[in-house]
Nucleic acid binder design. Structure first.
Lengths: 249, 249
DNA sequence: CTGCGTCGGATTGTCGGACAATAGGACAAC
DNA sequence: GTTGTCCTATTGTCCGACAATCCGACGCAG
């Protein structure tokens, strides 16, 4: 994460890419260029091996790489792999790994949420549809109905955020957001179970946000989401969790 | 990217994970738990194969997956793989793939930048060190010195953003930001070369931002960054590039 | 015609083993 | 200290094999 402004070297390292990298790259290019489209089945490993003139096991290594990048997946119970778009969850887990290993703290994630979430709420207030509202309300009800100490409750809170993201109609923010909520979820669980008033405060904020969206009141949406996120930090303080707690694995 | 509020199923798909996935998972867990730390060399493939009681090629498939996730890398010119933290660039490229395949448009990315960058600038204004300022100035000078039509200029602009991110001392935002600038870079290049006044406007904004940071003037930093990013969209409009242009590969 | 067994071929997951190229280290020569 | 030489361990790639199972076809009952 450090950088210098410029660092010219006399020679570049001589390029010696292993074959599996090049195979993966070739397929990746085709996918990004949409020559292979989502849902298209990949050729069989043997076919690929013949086309690239490499052994099947080399092809397989390349496939593992693409699989890990989320560019190909195997539909549950299918044998052949199909081309796919990286799922948001996939990116989120990558981001979470990075955050964990870079010793990101709770405040860092929280700060990022403070930046993003209120604006997402503001956008959502302008663009939400009736369907979005219905889903938000459903999530809200589900949260209120979730029994005390239910670990599922955090899932629902996260889902509320995700629906809101979808309502903002901005895929980029959705992707970024999701990583954050996912990273926070585990510790949030602990917080909710420790702080007695947390649940009611969350429910209240959700309600206010829903109302703001319904009225397309951009300012209020932003304000309440701000409050909502700020409350998280308050909750952590009350629960005696240090803001510098690293994101746990 | 769609979702429903809840979808209970009677049965989960019966779990039948291939061995390479489990091997990858096992190693991943050890890395995230810091039992294997950054820089530690992995055991050799043969050793791993013996420990996991699988064939070496199975281990290799697992390694490819970890490699793609950025959890292990091979230092240039080395033979064995070492544990590493996912580089920001790695995440950024994953994000870019996702954006491309999800048909993210230029406005979507721009909107996300409008949300994030001004706040990053604001944070940076509070936390910047002398070293940060020096690097910003260096990047700024480099930009001004870059010859007309130099494709490298965009690189420098991106670098300016990255230094600013580093100055904000928030790794989470840095990771999120980087993906955006990287996604925008290719089309930005076209814009800069088309719009004559683009370069001077960018240089001016950079200067103002640097001054704001130097004075730790949070409000001004936010304001000028806002203007800076907004200018990008203006530039696109002037250049006749549609805001709905998809992010190119 | 729709739904349900059955069956054969194709494809994947995994394995055993092989070999050339080379990184890494030890050791000698300058 | 640097440079050359040699040996060994390890990786990248290949070959070939086989069990499990997905896939599609085929036929039969309702």
């Amino acid at each position: 994460m450090q950088q210098s402004v410029a660092e010219p070297r006399l020679f570049e390292p001589v390029e010696r890419e292993p074959a599996y990298t090049r195979v993966a790259g070739a397929i990746e290019t085709k996918i990004l260029a949409r020559e292979l489209r989502e849902g298209d089945p990949l050729p069989t490993e043997t076919e690929l091996a013949q086309q690239f003139r490499v052994h099947r096991s080399t092809v397989r290594e390349a496939l593992r790489r693409l699989e890990s990048a989320g560019l190909i997946t195997r539909p549950p119970g299918a044998k052949r792999m199909v081309v796919s778009r990286p799922a948001a969850a996939q990116l989120a887990s990558g981001m979470r790994h990075a955050l964990v290993l870079h010793d990101a703290t709770f405040v860092a994630v929280w700060e990022a949420m403070m930046v993003i979430e209120p604006e997402v709420a503001a956008l959502a207030a302008q663009r939400r549809t009736q369907a979005d509202l219905a889903m938000l309300i459903a999530a809200h009800e589900a949260f209120k109905a979730s029994p005390k100490g239910d670990p599922h409750a955090v899932e629902i809170v996260a889902q509320f955020f995700e629906i809101l993201g979808a309502a903002s109609r901005n895929q980029v923010l959705v992707l970024a957001k999701q990583s954050l909520t996912r990273a926070l979820a585990p510790s949030l669980l602990k917080m909710i179970d420790t702080v007695p008033q947390a649940r009611s405060r969350i429910a209240d904020a959700q309600r206010r946000i829903i109302v703001s969206l319904k009225e397309k009141n951009v300012e209020e949406a932003r304000r309440w989401m701000s409050k909502h996120v700020r409350d998280f930090k308050r909750g952590y303080e009350v629960a005696g969790i240090s803001p510098d707690t690293p994101i746990s694995a």
